[in-house]
Design a binder for these strands. Structure first.
Lengths: 222, 222
DNA sequence: ATGAGATTTTAATAAACCTTGAATTGGTCT
DNA sequence: AGACCAATTCAAGGTTTATTAAAATCTCAT
């Protein structure tokens, strides 16, 4: 399922677009202002961004510029009718398309499909405190010290980091990393959490992975 | 088993939907007009509400508004085809999704499943006065003080908060949280209510959980 | 085919959690 | 008020769960 980030401050429009896109089978996350949008973008991977130009706290053009420093994710700008300046400015700064408000939802859908067809993947680095995980290089560092992880260890840490601030059940982890149904008899997860702790926590006197008894494991901000 | 409240005045449609949903394993209660629907909702806990917009005695939007004052139960609106106004109005007033009549039963089922499932990851925070329950992080705070809850305690509080303003019987709580039939001999619920009170009420001089003698427990707005 | 490293299983231990039942308190009805 | 029933409280003991170390198994490059 394609993930879309909608950065839009007008609640009715945001809600409406979100629901319509849900209906079409997209997974939509909404951010209400520019700063939020940028944060959310940094924290999660998206396949496409819908970005309003007029935004509180950090305007659309600025958000566009900053996202482009990080990623070449497809971006569609939402502009006011006849604001030629906005369009030009948006495209100049790396937007892939624009659509003027108010728009027919069908037109938006068409432009979405169009851009998503061309798309390539990205998102290469996840981090949390002194912990950095480079997905492309398959590398992990803590406090700038490189730590060698096996594939399973890496995948587990990847999963926990990708969904930080969310408790992940053993069931879900087994399903996503091992690829089979959790039958309740294996404690592989527990063992790998132990390995990770021994490699990335104990030597550096850090604490990343927390146990939530009866539920699962989580990496979370305080 | 998931409980669904269907508020719909056209008998054929109501009957049809009820049978189909029963067939899928849902327990369906039907109300024939807005006023009835609201009454039934207040009297029993439901996992989801299907709400027609065009209703006698109290229209759907008004019912929606009143239910939202009491609860954040997932609500799907049933709207006439092409009635954009209805959609917008519904979503503005807190509906979670809509479906246009006439609809294929399969689509309704898909949206039901979607909402019943997403509830976990989407509605991530429940709150009541100074009490906050973060479902993703599995964390509870009172007056911004973090309180450690065990799984059972958390599940019980979750249930009470999710259905706030509704009395939950011991039968229902045992069924939903412990997962077996209430045989009348266990007092586990009472004990856990005690634990919760000791953890989230007494230290903060608050009162969240009320006992309804002979019926069950409730968290309610004044 | 071999062996080093990776992965999974097993088992012991300790800690946290849950249940139970009996004693006590509190509310309700006549 | 007194009888009765429902709810509350408490602590002991029984159970479950997480952690850990170590052994068994698997896998892949040589």
């Amino acid at each position: 399922m394609k993930r879309i980030l909608l950065i839009e401050d007008e609640p009715q429009i945001a809600r409406f677009v979100q629901l319509e896109l849900n209906h079409e089978g997209y997974e939509v996350t909404v951010a209400n202002d520019g700063r939020d949008g940028l944060e959310v973008f940094k924290a999660h991977p998206f396949d496409l961004v819908l970005l309003d130009i007029m935004l509180p706290s950090l305007n659309g053009i600025e958000v566009l510029r900053r996202i482009r420093q990080l990623s070449n994710v497809p971006i569609i700008m939402l502009t006011a009718r006849d604001s030629v300046m906005d369009k030009v400015s948006g495209l100049d700064n790396g937007a892939d398309d624009y659509i003027t408000k108010p728009f027919a939802i069908e037109e938006l859908l068409a432009r979405l499909r169009n851009l998503l067809r061309k798309q390539v993947s990205q998102t290469s680095v996840l981090s949390y405190k002194s912990l950095v995980l480079d997905l492309n290089q398959h590398e992990c560092t803590v406090n700038n010290n490189q730590v060698d992880l096996t594939k399973k260890e890496f995948d587990l840490l990847h999963m926990l980091l990708k969904h930080k601030n969310q408790v992940l059940s053993r069931e879900l982890l087994i399903e996503k990393i091992w690829g089979y149904e959790f039958d309740g008899t294996t404690n592989s997860i527990d063992v790998y959490v132990r390995y990770l702790r021994a490699k990335i926590e104990e030597p550096f006197d850090e604490k990343f992975i927390h146990t939530v008894r009866g539920v699962g494991y989580i990496i979370k901000d305080e």
